[in-house]
Design a binder for these strands. Sequence first.
DNA 1: CCGCATCCGACGCGATACTG
DNA 2: CAGTATCGCGTCGGATGCGG
Lengths: 123, 123
Amino acid sequence: MTYDIMSASCPSRIVLRRIGARWTVFIVNALEHEPMRFTALATRIQGITPKVLAETLRSLEEDGLVSRTVFDENPPHVEYELTELGRSLLVPLRAVREWAEEHVPTVLAARAARAALRPTDAG
Amino acid sequence: MTYDIMSASCPSRIVLRRIGARWTVFIVNALEHEPMRFTALATRIQGITPKVLAETLRSLEEDGLVSRTVFDENPPHVEYELTELGRSLLVPLRAVREWAEEHVPTVLAARAARAALRPTDAG
DNA sequence: CCGCATCCGACGCGATACTG
DNA sequence: CAGTATCGCGTCGGATGCGG
């Protein structure tokens, strides 16, 4: 059974929204090769705050994309790892990331052209 | 010259954020096969409001992904169409959409399992 | 009737500081 | 080390109005 993604009730929209969340693509890509600890993720993904990192990881965990493993040690040790479902998401996300990297000059040029054409008064 | 996408100053982040905007994937996919008018887009993409549709279209236009053509007729006639850059974005976005459609049952099942395991008081 | 612009509320996101 | 608590802002969304 397939849904029309343009329909408001289409379940894929829920998933798409999660994927489109601000930091999902960075977290999933950071976990591409190996499990990582919380602080390692926070260090690797520049600009993310602990709060948002924790929230996003919870969401990804809830959706079965990331698994969270607690090692009962001192100091505390928690590892995050992609599940098989999460690894399957790597493929399309990498395509998006590569598109962004490849076309960023074109996009920035388009923006600059717009800005140059937008006069304050003369025109 | 390549940037590290994990760096806060990486320009790709700007592009990724635009791609991840709430309705971008729907608009781009709606324009996949042919130019569309404002109202046609609003009708096709269920749940979007005119305000957000207009805003998102402006953003996409600013980034050179969508072109806007005004036909000087009565009644007014405006068409939106993917640029070549926009069409190139179709490829990765379609991959994401297809991933969502394919894996939505798994994600929903993971959520349901979480919900079932989350007790109000009993464990 | 088509294509928006404006006003206002809700929520996700961000900076800072603090805890087990 | 691995988070949580608090507060503020920007973006998103709904309702309404307006020009051609």
